[in-house]
Design a binder for these strands. Sequence first.
RNA 1: GGGGGUUUGCCCGAGUGGUUAAAGGGGGCGGACUGUAAAUCCGUUGGCUUAGCCUUCACAGGUUCGAAUCCUGUAGCCCCCA
Length: 427
Amino acid sequence: MTDPQLLDELRWRGLIHQCTDTDELAKLLASGPQTVYIGFDPTADSLHVGSMMQLMMLRRFQRAGHRPIALVGGATGMIGDPSGKSEERNLLSAEQLEANVAGVASQMRRFLDFEGPQAALLLNNFDWMQGYSYLEFLRDVGKSFPIGVMLGKDSVRSRLESEAGLSYTEFSYMLLQAYDFVHLNREHGCLIQAGGSDQWGNVTAGIDLGRRMLGKQLFGITAPLLTTTDGRKMGKTEQGAIWLAADRTSPYQFYQYWRRVEDADVMRCIAYLTEIEREEFDTLQEATTADPGRRVAQNRLAEWMTQLVHGTEGLESAERASKILFGGEIGKQTDASLGEIFADVPSSEIARSQLDDEGYWIVEAFQEAGLAGSGGEARRAIKDGGAYVNNVRITDGQHRLTESDLASETVMVLRKGKRNYALLKFK
RNA sequence: GGGGGUUUGCCCGAGUGGUUAAAGGGGGCGGACUGUAAAUCCGUUGGCUUAGCCUUCACAGGUUCGAAUCCUGUAGCCCCCA
């Protein structure tokens, strides 16, 4: 019925950062299916890699026979969690929140099973918070919150000591999240809240409130944050976050992100984010140590993650694109296939007549495609051997592009350097 | 209010009348090497119709055959005195 190995698995994967009472939690989980919840902040209309840790946590619980609740913070999102934030946040508008909640909800279906006996629940705390009057809330919930304890929380203290300070609104955030836990216990019998390690303060606040309001022992478990070896948050690039939504981060970019993970981080990513079993994990680890150049672990990680988030189709197109981009010359393709491969590559449209007669000057083409800010820059790229058309290096600064350079019906693929692509569409 | 200093390219920073589009470093961009890595090395880094031309050293004017360099004014920053 329920898998007794769950905690052991979380442990070997390094997913238990803190837990309020491991022994009692183990007994509880062994006693039968439990309900566990994690809150998600709807700050955007898509989740990103950072949220995957939490989604996978819920998924692991569900696969072990428990019921997951993904709580979208429609109400708490209006307030803003001060945990780990150095500055007061801007409040989101109600319409924005609604759109975000909808977007986030659809992505969760990839991770959780909303059917069957342990069907996941997707709840929005706005539903029970919106009608809760301020007076009632203060009498029911606020009464059980000693200010001294609240002031002792790291999230509050660090902000009070900082220049940014902390508004009453954000200070109150903790009460809202704590009340969620109580509410979920009453309505759904939820006894466990999980989350990232930055949520510890909020989680324990909920547990305290549960003891006071319900006289019940609730449980909290937090996972470490997904960071690189040198302490930076993973899932971020110079271009921004890695999103789960295909229209924000294409399957190809998503796939490539994982393929490029550093050796030092790759095994931790696999442990934290995938369901790759211990045996294969050990094999991958050995392979990485023995021959890091083959990047076996990175490839497997990318494959697993892309498959889950973007499905078989997304994975195949990402692999196909990678093969073409990192292979040699781009042979004859169709507009459709190039469009798919270079979905996230900027493109410019040019009049087809430019290709007539003596053709379209390469320097102009690079400028037009946005790969060079000036003619000089384009010339330099060519002189340095960093200019490619359809992945073939161009060394002649006077080169003219003609119909024969088209990689498909209307498209040419320009590249500067290793991976700065741009498309020119000749209409 | 008075006196002194300072202002250079993406950033830092040399340069005080004549190959100075401006040393050096950082960063960026290329390339080689490699594992679509790290480290390293090399090239490049104002614009253009590029063996040439044009525009740049806070801004505006002036001296000079010739100015980033000298003079005057304006603005920003810094220091000292009141």
